[in-house]
Structures are given as structure tokens and as C-alpha cells.
């Protein structure tokens, strides 16, 4: 970048030649490194995607070329695997979680950002600290609770548990944006006769939108992919996509092509949003860390 050369090109010195050669090897190494990384991360995913279109015979062959078939998809939506129903369950749980999590987190974020509570910052930190508690500890009493009130294997139970995972993070993601928003803007709105609530809706939320979007994407990714709680809480009617992966393990052996179909279904939304994820989701999780 820092080019010191003027119009005249001087003879390169030995050191310069060596540096140039060094630079060349470095850039070759760089390209090799980038290719290697791409291969290591892309090929496994591609292989799984390809497997979804293979006949059972092709699945266990290592040939790169095969005749694609849609039979696996037909089989997956059939009565044994009920892919359609699983997709529907996943959508209900994800949408339900988002519909509760985002408004309640936004409200709490604003509250923590603008009001003083006895105990102060202890509460939002304590909320975040619960996320370090192992999932198995949370699920044992909830399993008993849901069993006793007949909510096992329902989307409601899954939505409730997912809320406990996403709300603490979402509050923090949104709160960061609200903290950065100067109080004056709200006060100006309130001066004009708007109630505090109106000021929140009209002034604060639009400005905090990037944080709310980040939190929404985060909640979406986490809930859509959630496996462990759903494994414990569902058995039949409310099985979600990640848990249904396990159903490809049958007595007759693993049906990998079905697993690949389900896997592909889980990945599709992630592929669609991976650009956005790169921009938002990761920023959200690291917002505290980078500061």
C-alpha cells in the first residue's frame, strides 16, 4: 500500500528481491489456505445436499457422479417420516417463539435501559448468567411440570422453553442499541405532548430497529435449530425438524438419504439468510465482547 516509488524505477536491491519473493510465496500460501478452508467447510455440506438426491445404492458408493432422484423426498413426506408435519411444527414453534420473544424483550430492554430498578444492573446480568446453567438442569423440572399439566409433546411447551433461551440474549442485544440512543430524542417527543409509551413506539423502536432485527435473526436461528429440549419434550405430534433427524436411525440401519433430505430442509432457510447472518447475528453475540 505504502508506495514510495516515484517516476524513476531504481534497480531492485537484493533485499527487495527477497521480499518480493517472500510476498509471492505468502500470497500462494494464502490462496492455498483459503482453498483448503473452503474445501473443508463447503464439501461436507455439499456432500450432504447431494446425498438427499441419491438412491440408497448411490448413498453407500463414493462415486462423485450419480443419477439424481427425488424418491427420497417422496419417501420423507410419506407416513414414516411426515416431513410436512415436521416442517409445520418447526414453523409453529419458531414463529410462536419470535412473536412472544421479540416484543417482550424489546419492552424489557427499554425498561432496563431507561428505568432504575432496585438492584440495578444485577438483574440483566443475572438473566444472562442463567444461560451458563446447563440445559439438562433446566429441563428436568420442566419435563415434570409439562408432564403434570399435560403439555408434553405440544408446541406450547417448546415455545415456552425456547423463550428461556432466547429472551435473555435478545434483551441484551436490543438494550445495547437503546443505551446508545440519546435521551433527548425521547424528551423532545414527550415535550411535544406524546406520552412516554408513544415516544417509545414512535421514536425509540425505529432507532433500535437494527438491534431488534439482530435479535430476531438470532432467535430464529437458535429456535429453528434447537434440538435438545425438543428431543426431551416431544415424542410424536410435535416433533420438530432437528429431532426428526434421529428418526432416520431405524432398526434396519441408518437411512442416510432421508437424514440428508431432512438436513437439507433444515439448512435451506439458513442458506437464504447466511449473508444477513454474517452481518447481523454475529455482531449481536459479540457486541459485548468487542467493546
Amino acid at each position: 500500500m505504502t508506495s514510495l516509488s516515484s517516476g524513476v524505477a531504481p534497480m531492485p536491491t537484493k533485499a527487495q528481491i527477497r521480499r518480493q519473493r517472500n510476498r509471492k510465496t505468502m500470497s500462494v500460501l494464502r490462496i492455498v489456505g483459503i482453498l483448503l478452508i473452503t474445501a473443508l467447510w463447503l464439501l461436507p455440506v455439499l456432500w450432504i445436499c447431494a446425498t438427499a438426491f441419491k438412491s440408497p445404492g448411490d448413498v453407500i458408493s463414493l462415486d462423485i457422479f450419480f443419477t439424481p432422484t427425488l424418491d427420497n423426498f417422496a419417501k420423507a413426506v410419506g407416513p414414516n417420516y411426515q416431513l410436512g408435519g415436521r416442517i409445520w411444527n418447526s414453523i409453529i414453534v419458531t414463529v410462536g417463539t419470535l412473536l412472544v420473544a421479540i416484543p417482550s424483550s424489546t419492552a424489557a430492554a427499554y425498561a432496563f435501559s431507561r428505568f432504575r430498578y432496585p438492584g440495578g444492573i444485577v438483574w440483566p446480568i443475572g438473566l444472562l448468567a442463567t444461560q451458563f446453567v446447563p440445559a439438562v438442569m433446566i429441563i428436568i423440572p420442566l419435563f415434570i411440570l409439562f408432564r403434570s399439566i399435560g403439555l408434553l409433546d405440544t408446541p406450547i411447551a417448546l415455545i415456552a422453553v425456547n423463550l428461556s433461551v432466547v429472551v435473555p440474549y435478545a434483551i441484551w442485544m436490543i438494550k445495547g442499541f437503546m443505551d446508545a440512543l440519546p435521551m433527548d430524542m425521547e424528551e423532545a417527543a414527550m415535550m411535544d405532548g406524546a406520552s412516554r409509551f408513544r415516544a417509545l413506539i414512535d421514536v425509540v423502536i425505529p432507532v433500535a430497529m437494527p438491534g431488534i432485527i439482530t435479535a430476531t435473526i438470532f432467535c430464529f436461528v437458535v429456535t429453528w435449530n434447537e434440538f435438545f429440549y425438543a428431543l426431551i419434550l416431544t415424542s410424536n405430534d410435535s416433533v420438530t425438524l432437528p429431532v426428526s433427524l434421529m428418526s432416520a436411525r431405524t432398526d434396519k440401519g441408518d437411512e442416510w438419504e432421508i437424514m440428508a433430505v431432512i438436513g437439507l430442509t433444515i439448512m435451506v432457510p439458513m442458506m437464504l439468510i447466511s449473508r444477513v447472518v454474517q452481518r447481523h447475528f454475529l455482531k449481536g453475540l459479540t457486541a459485548g465482547a468487542v467493546k
Binding site: 473452503t38 435449530n225 434421529m246 439448512m267 439458513m270 442458506m271 447466511s274 447472518v277 454475529l282
Partner: peptide, 19 residues
């Protein structure tokens, strides 16, 4: 390349394991 890599992270942990 980063978009490809993010996909691995946005994959369900269960899917990662079973894949």
C-alpha cells in the same frame, strides 16, 4: 468464503453431529 463458513455455524448442532 465467509458466507460459506457461516453456514456451518448456522447449522443445527444436531445436524452437524449426524452429518
Amino acid at each position: 468464503v465467509r458466507s460459506i463458513l457461516v453456514l456451518a455455524f448456522a447449522m443445527s448442532p444436531a445436524l452437524v453431529g449426524i452429518s
